[in-house]
Amino acid sequence: MCTQIHMCIHIQSFSHFLNSGTGPEVWGNCNAPKAITVSAVIYCLRSMVGHDIPLNQGCLKPVTIKIPPGCLLDPSPDAAVVGGNVQTSQRIVDVILHAFGACAASQGCMNNITFGDESVGYYETVAGGAGAGPAWHGRSGIHVHMTNTRITDPELLESRYPVILNKFTLNQGTGGRGKFRWW
């Protein structure tokens, strides 16, 4: 579990990102490799631009991203990083979108579920939801931001794994109150 980590993204302009206030890499696995951090920045910029921008390294030419080596967002090669992809990447996106006033926070995690033993292994991201924006309600039960996957259909889950899914529902009323809500 990632707790008490410090992430600071200074945005000097739409094209200048400085992560100089980010804390050092952590002992747990919530460090995000530099590639994940850069991917989150690209995702945010492409989402906010409002035009179809090809996804390639060229779209970053006008963008400056400075990340101090050894920090949470560019850890050393020995640092654990699995949580950086599923949790920290979502937080990076939330921080950037908030800084631009583009959207409220998402669920903040890819909400993973995993189980298995010596003969079978299962890992999946479970949709949480999207935050509300300046003129729209949020959505529950959808994958957003750094996870745009689709959950396995219950019938496939039960036919391929030794499980029976008894219930899978949305947790109603968890989005808070406001003019535009996360339903």
Results as ranks from 00 to 15, higher is better:
7 M>H: 01
14 F>M: 11
126 V>F: 06
178 G>P: 02
96 I>E: 00
54 P>N: 06
146 M>Y: 00
50 G>W: 04
9 I>V: 15
160 R>H: 11
49 V>F: 04
124 E>T: 07
99 A>K: 11
81 V>F: 00
153 D>S: 13
16 H>P: 05
72 L>T: 11
12 Q>M: 04
66 K>Q: 11
176 G>V: 10
30 C>T: 09
44 C>S: 11
36 I>G: 01
101 G>F: 05
44 C>H: 03
21 G>D: 08
98 H>V: 07
158 E>D: 08
163 V>E: 11
46 R>V: 11
117 D>S: 08
80 A>W: 02
13 S>L: 03
74 D>T: 07
127 A>C: 12
129 G>C: 01
99 A>N: 12
89 S>E: 09
100 F>C: 12
167 K>C: 10
103 C>A: 12
91 R>W: 14
140 S>D: 12
10 H>W: 05
105 A>P: 05
179 K>M: 09
151 I>C: 08
169 T>N: 12
127 A>Q: 06
42 I>Q: 12
15 S>Q: 09
138 G>P: 05
106 S>H: 02
174 T>H: 10
104 A>G: 10
90 Q>K: 10
5 I>P: 00
100 F>L: 12
108 G>L: 04
94 D>M: 06
99 A>I: 08
43 Y>H: 15
26 V>G: 00
117 D>V: 06
94 D>A: 04
138 G>I: 02
65 I>Y: 03
177 R>M: 11
143 H>L: 05
96 I>R: 00
169 T>I: 15
179 K>D: 09
6 H>F: 07
99 A>C: 14
98 H>G: 11
63 V>R: 02
5 I>Q: 07
181 R>K: 13
168 F>Y: 14
114 T>I: 10
28 G>D: 15
174 T>F: 01
130 A>H: 01
46 R>A: 10
55 L>N: 12
149 T>Y: 04
181 R>L: 10
119 S>E: 15
38 V>P: 02
